[in-house]
């Protein structure tokens, strides 16, 4: 049985004139024990999707279920079985770390000690601050506490909406390591992020843009679909270089990519042509080499098609 199953979900906001389609006919499923990522920028529809699956919002049409329970008919069953960490910090700021944990445990009619072994690895990192009010914690610590609270009743499926937004690289890395640990304990995880580089840590990802799924595959599978030759170029005058490249007719697309520009070429024959053209142009210290596309390159290509 799928941990999450979504069929033809449509969700819109606003009246006729200014209607915004948050989700336009979305379908996918998450296997039991899978770490599944929803990758998309702000406004893609990630939060609407999470709210529908956690029974907090009714879709206009379509069906969805979590561990076999229907999100509309079996609302109460689902709520007992899932853990949800919303994008916005939503713990009680005036309660201490420990009080928040006891509070959430009580709501789910369990106790902190009963499921301690599940959260132990995460909790030990915030334990030194257990008497501090949640509102006084740093971003990384808040995030760990929120995860502990979402896990306190040992959920079967965990929903994490942008858990790594606004936290630094060290905390982000630690957070993803924690998710790998939870996956090993058999918890199915649906996680969303606007950061493309985080896709690689998931078993499978859905790339979401303006309410539509651009692609569903393993990260390697998404990348394998990028068929064009891709070249990274660099010169002293980066802006002039980009403008020059965009005038070449064998170039399909070109855009800044960190310290390089990425150039998507129509075919292999264009690689030497690009080299010739750039050598002829006087832009200073030109270097170029072929590169493997990453998730961000794929997302850009899918967005433009």
């Amino acid at each position: 049985m799928a941990a999450v199953s979504v069929e033809n979900i449509i969700m819109s906001y606003g009246k006729k004139k200014q209607k915004i389609n948050a989700l336009s006919d979305i379908s996918f499923s998450v296997a039991a024990g899978e770490l599944f990522g929803i990758i998309g920028p702000d406004g893609a529809g990630k939060t609407s999707l999470f709210r529908i699956l956690t029974t907090l919002l009714l879709a206009d049409s379509g069906q969805a279920s979590v561990n076999g329970f229907d999100v509309v008919k079996d609302m109460k069953q689902i709520r007992k079985r899932i853990g949800y960490m919303p994008g916005r910090f939503s713990l009680y700021q005036d309660l201490t770390v420990e009080e928040n944990l006891h509070f959430f445990a009580t709501i789910f009619q369990t106790s902190f000690s009963e499921n301690y072994n599940l959260i132990k690895d995460i909790y030990v990192q915030i334990e030194p601050f257990k008497n501090r009010r949640a509102g006084q914690l740093s971003g990384g610590m808040k995030q760990k506490l929120a995860l502990c609270c979402a896990l306190i009743h040992r959920p079967e499926v965990l929903f994490l909406d942008e858990p790594t937004t606004g936290v630094d690289a060290v905390s982000r890395k630690e957070f993803w390591d924690m998710l790998q640990g939870l996956k090993k304990q058999g918890i199915s995880i649906l996680v969303s992020t606007p950061y493309m580089d985080e896709a690689n840590i998931c078993d499978r990802v859905a790339l979401l843009q303006k309410g539509k799924i651009l692609s569903i595959d393993s990260p390697a599978g998404v990348i394998a679909h990028f068929k064009n030759p891709l070249v990274a170029v660099k010169a002293k005058q980066m802006l002039a270089l980009l403008e020059k490249i965009k005038t070449l007719d064998f170039v399909q697309d070109a855009y800044p990519f960190g310290e390089f520009h990425h150039v998507v070429l129509q075919n292999e024959k264009a690689v030497p042509s690009l080299e010739q053209e750039l050598e002829a142009a006087d832009l200073g210290h030109i270097t170029m080499h072929k590169v493997q596309a990453n998730i961000e390159d794929c997302f850009i290509q899918l967005m433009k098609n």
Partner: peptide, 9 residues
Amino acid sequence: GGVDPVTRR
């Protein structure tokens, strides 16, 4: 932070 990769470029 948060914008799509095309807008970001």
